[in-house]
Amino acid sequence: MLVKRLQPMISHARRSYVGLMFQVMGRALQAISEVDEKTRNETRALPEGFLFEMQVMPNGPALIVEHTGDGLLYYHGDSAPRPVDLSIQFKHLTHAFLVLSFQEKTSVAFANDRMLVDGDVSLAVRMTRVLNRLESFILPKLVAQRAVKEYPANLHLPEKLMSAARIYLKVATNLVETVRA
């Protein structure tokens, strides 16, 4: 009975959490493309002006980033300026929550059919590598191990801390600028 009464609140909280995580991830994607050469090596292969979206079906929270050239990503928020080129869509808010709360790895979510890819699959694989690298940088190792298939063996603490600090600083700056605007 109590669970039934709390259900709308739980659902609202999950939606807010997923929306917030998308905002952080979108800004962090932009930031990592500015601070990490290996990420830029991955994203340089994307066509210039390429729009990438992660979204919860049917009209749930979303994040959209654009490749603006030379591997740099730009976070557009939750609405795209034109039709996106590649979309990774969670079938349900619950599935997005499982992944974004690190209860289910991204790779496991793919294997469990929680997500659909609309667009070039090879570019989706590339963007997944970028997301994995981002999570390995910005999450504590114990949490990152729950998010990625394999925590990179060659990612050592000094590099992780330095990169994470620069990414978080850029995310915070971007958030403040957005609020001011």
């Binding site: 790779s107 793919f110 294997a111 890819v117 699959v121 090879s122 570019l123 989706a124 694989v125 590339r126 997944t128 994995n132 990625v148 298939k149 394999e150």
Partner: peptide
């Protein structure tokens, strides 16, 4: 091979 869709389902990264 690294960009092939099936690599997503390989048990090891």
């Amino acid at each position: 091979a690294l960009d092939d869709g099936s690599i997503m389902f390989n048990p090891r990264e």
